[in-house]
Design a binder for these strands. Structure first.
Lengths: 308, 308
DNA sequence: GTTCCGCATGAATCGATAG
DNA sequence: ACTATCGATTCATGCGGAA
């Protein structure tokens, strides 16, 4: 089995991206800091400056993406003084002028959105997942994200990973061929452009702005094993974590040193635990479950890193 | 009980709107012809002409809406040559320049959306419901659209009741603590900005572009009985039908004579049947149920009208 | 080993208050 | 008058300890 690479780059992505080769990335999945959000970690880009701030990055992304690759941008405009900001709309228009095709807009429906009550609006429970491409024709593996038939399941992308495992297993025992795929076709349908996922609560030690199921879904849809995934705003590392799990190579760029170190250390620690686990397993002394490994790497927190 | 008025106007709404008084409408709810759609009826507005075509109408709508009224625009850009059109984004920006506030964007998640399969995209299962206002402060009756609390609560609060009663009693002397009992009583919560409605089945004779539940929801939220509702692109008449049912006055404008006649005739027929029903009921000869009335007016189809 | 409950925690938003 | 900060509001979810 070929080795999977995970490169973590520290720095401003506008600069760090220059070290990435032309036409080398299959999927860009990222969630940049929203305007006026994450002020403490990223300084808070003002809405009126947002497009100007993003465009140089967009130019680099356009350069590094393969012609048949895909760029998924997770973003949502805030409401202020009773009105929605328009910088996201302007960003879409600006990226098109830069040469991107605005292929599709997926909706991420967050059932557990932020609470609150206001006299003039309800809670905001959705975000945009904007799909951009360099070319009208791009790689898309629709069968990889098919969902079980029935209402109970169509909303539950959470279970996708489970069902997919069984499907992969049946595939691996090849020779069944058409029978199996026919049988699958009857029980699975293609999804739509609305994704129904809860946000991950921050009771876990590392907080993520989106659940793992989100990049997982797009990696299944737009990449295969061994492909390259890029996240220029890595944050707590969800994208590369999922990429490793799914055996995709990945590049993550993060400007905050503590986050960067945290992700690196987590990867090392997982490597270590996996090796250790294998050794002990071979020695027959102990069983380290995957569950334990996961627990262990979740304990890595920014605080712990800065202390070291 | 005060009489509810339903005015159906035949003609191009840009002109017909001029007969509507300034500041007289509480809610505008409409689904205009999308670019390149309904070519036969509206001549098919080209995407690049869409904003220019809509702005004069937007100006009239701005004039007739009450200062504390709301304008809901149901729209979705189509995909062409692998790319989403941008005329909706440009329309939002243009309406803002015209003086509208872009207050919110609701998502209508169509559970059973149009079937189909394409190599580069999934089925489109959502539409935009853009909310515009003249003023930052507008009427909103949030309690009218509250929804049952999520399943998590019923499971969790089920067994809380026992301990709660005792706790409540014990603390009642101190004057504190009705907190938990409040939670039990709170079986309804405010909704979010994602509407989860099925598209209407097409088994009726006239097909509508949106289900009755859609205007119904917004009428509950933004109007009271006796208020005025306007739909400048009436189509098959869903908006005024719902308005009548909910005892809101309404104005509907439609450019296609056959549609216009159909709606008018449907209203008359319902009136007639209601009167007839009352008479017969008083005479004790017959019972005409509301169900029957509904059935009767559903039989009115454009075909039937043109034949007469 | 289950299931069950207490609790903390959000890419939020508005109005009021302070400089 | 304008910006900056703060408190109040609200509900789905996962974790951890308890039954």
């Amino acid at each position: 089995m070929k080795e999977i690479k995970t490169n973590i780059l520290l720095g401003d992505c506008k600069e760090a991206l220059k070290t990435v080769d032309d036409n080398s990335i299959d999927l860009i999945f990222t969630s940049p800091p929203y305007a006026d959000r994450r002020v403490k970690t990223y300084g808070g880009i003002k809405p009126e400056d947002y497009v100007g701030w993003f465009l140089p990055i967009g130019k680099q992304l356009l350069r590094v993406l393969k012609p048949d690759g895909t760029f998924i941008l997770n973003i949502k405009e805030k409401a202020e003084n009773g009105e929605r900001h328009i910088y996201v709309l302007e960003l879409i228009l600006a990226l098109r002028k830069q040469g991107w095709l605005w292929t599709e807009e997926f909706i991420w429906h967050k059932k557990n959105c932020y609470p609150g009550k206001w006299p003039n609006r309800f809670r905001d429970s959705w975000e945009r997942l904007l799909q951009f491409n360099k070319n009208r024709f791009f790689k898309m593996y629709q069968e990889e994200v098919m969902v079980p038939v029935g209402d109970w399941a169509s909303d539950r992308l959470k279970r996708l990973s489970e069902t997919d495992k069984t499907r992969d297993n049946s595939k691996s025992g090849s020779g069944f061929g058409k029978n199996v795929s026919n049988w699958i076709d009857r029980r699975y349908v293609y999804p739509t452009n609305v994704l129904h996922l809860p946000t991950e609560c921050n009771n876990k030690n590392h907080s993520a702005v989106f659940p793992e199921a989100l990049p997982e879904w797009f990696m299944k849809l737009f990449t295969k094993q061994g492909d390259w995934v890029l996240d220029p705003f890595l944050g707590s590392g969800t994208t590369v974590r999922v990429a490793r799990k799914m055996r995709r190579n990945s590049i993550g760029i993060e400007i905050v040193p503590e986050y960067c170190e945290m992700v690196k250390s987590e990867i090392n620690q997982v490597e270590y635990l996996l090796c250790e686990g294998e050794e002990r397993y071979e020695a027959g002394k102990n069983k380290r479950s995957a569950k334990l490994c996961r627990k262990a790497h979740r304990r890595v927190s920014p605080k712990a890193v800065t202390k070291s």
